[in-house]
């Protein structure tokens, strides 16, 4: 279950997609041009009558940001359906999701392992904060990184039947852009009550 508002997506020509405001309110902190976004990702905040909620992409929309509304303002008022971003397809960026398998180590900690071999990214774009960092408490469905396999990006989710519902990150093992093998550790975790 992901909280927040889901933006509207309008397909354009050649696979591009226009991302629009789902309600009337202030849009805060849109990403800069060049950032790669994937489906379901939180990309800004939405302020309605003083309260803020995460603003997410619809699951079907992903790509590289090529247009940002608001003339560079960090916070601006948007009407319903007002375009916020334009995304263009990047290679074969897809919002495929891969659930990582977890198992206990001998030390009693949990280890989240790479679901397949590829290049692991800890952040959605070079100038963006990491998906997770040491000390974060994860809940099911949280994106922990991107895995690029043959130019196809997949989101790696904290999700699985044998995972505790909440877990704290002890260590993020690979650095941003590291190649990882299937089964290699991505995160070390401990269960949180």
């Amino acid at each position: 279950m992901t909280a927040g508002l889901v933006a509207l997506a309008q397909p354009l020509e050649e696979g591009a997609v226009s991302i629009a405001s789902p309600a009337v309110g202030y849009v805060v902190g849109l990403p800069a041009p060049g950032v790669v976004l994937v489906g379901g990702q939180r990309f800004a905040e939405f302020e309605l009558l003083g309260g803020r909620e995460p603003l997410r992409l619809p699951a079907s929309a992903s790509g590289r940001v090529v247009f940002v509304a608001g003339d560079g303002a960090r916070r601006f008022g948007a009407a319903y359906g007002e375009p916020l971003l334009r995304l263009e397809p990047v290679g074969d960026v897809l919002a495929r999701e891969a659930s990582a398998a977890a198992e206990s180590t001998t030390e009693g900690a949990l280890v989240l392992r790479a679901p397949m071999t590829g290049r692991f990214y800890v952040r959605p774009a070079p100038d963006k904060p990491a998906f997770v960092k040491q000390g974060d408490v994860l809940e099911a469905g949280r994106t922990i990184g991107l895995l690029e396999v043959m130019k196809t990006f997949s989101r790696v989710l904290y999700e699985g039947a044998d995972l505790p519902t909440r877990a704290r990150v002890l260590r993020v093992v690979p650095a941003d852009g590291d190649d990882v093998e299937e089964g290699e550790s991505l995160l070390e975790l401990e269960a949180v009550d």
């Binding site: 309600a23 009337v24 309110g25 202030y26 309605l48 009558l49 008022g77 009407a79 319903y80």
Partner: peptide, 11 residues
């Protein structure tokens, strides 16, 4: 309600 009031305030 909320959307209408927000629209008034932000305009």
């Amino acid at each position: 309600r909320e959307r209408v009031v927000q629209a008034a305030a932000q305009s």
